[in-house]
Write a protein that binds this DNA or RNA. Sequence first.
DNA 1: ATCTATGCATCGTATACCTATGTATTATTG
DNA 2: CAATAATACATAGGTATACGATGCATAGAT
Lengths: 114, 114
Amino acid sequence: MKVNKELLKGSTVILVLSLLNREPMYGYKMIKEIEKKSNGVFMFKEGTLYPILHSLEADGMIESYWLGNEGSRQRKYYRITNKGSNCLKERELEWVTFRSAVDKILTGEAYAWL
Amino acid sequence: MKVNKELLKGSTVILVLSLLNREPMYGYKMIKEIEKKSNGVFMFKEGTLYPILHSLEADGMIESYWLGNEGSRQRKYYRITNKGSNCLKERELEWVTFRSAVDKILTGEAYAWL
DNA sequence: ATCTATGCATCGTATACCTATGTATTATTG
DNA sequence: CAATAATACATAGGTATACGATGCATAGAT
């Protein structure tokens, strides 16, 4: 993790949902994808990701199914649900709001939108 | 708090240091300033801010001094130290790194800088 | 044959923000 | 003038969450 790990808190769910919103994927692949797409900034640990996936599934945000290409290893794929898709939209808005608020304070700018 | 409070984690220190980097300030004022500058997105609680201030002071990032304008109420002002100023620079870089990494994943873009 | 990478999973721990609470002063308002 | 709200500092305890460590198993590389 290149950045303060505390920064990551609160962003994990949106990152996972965003990945699954593009295509169904299995856990291990997500870890690699997030690392790749973030240029190594985020390196999710199994102990971080799997509990999130289980929790998102319990909340009906994602669904899982086992898949194995003829005789090969079984992988547990996840796909996003409608509920999860809606949740993602809210979270994206939330992220933009959060990001501008931090930027505003860091730049010393007040009362300006985006 | 308009956004998921978990998002805030890891950003509190940079917000406090950034405020104090402009001018010395006392705790209660910081809470109001952060709320105002973030357009109400961040509403720090006393239970959040004061422990952070004490911790930053213990780490030598900020210094405190009591000040009361002729007979008025005493306020505990904090000013940033050189160490704190350097820390802020690192944290700002970290924030930009984090922000672009999240944005990259949300937009699905890979291998692009800023 | 051994080591590395893949792939899923869980438990305990540390961190850190919030809630609740306490105390005291100053300003406002009926 | 009394009551209330705002100001101002502080801390204890609860809770959420990511991480470290660990375990198990298969597949590929050397």
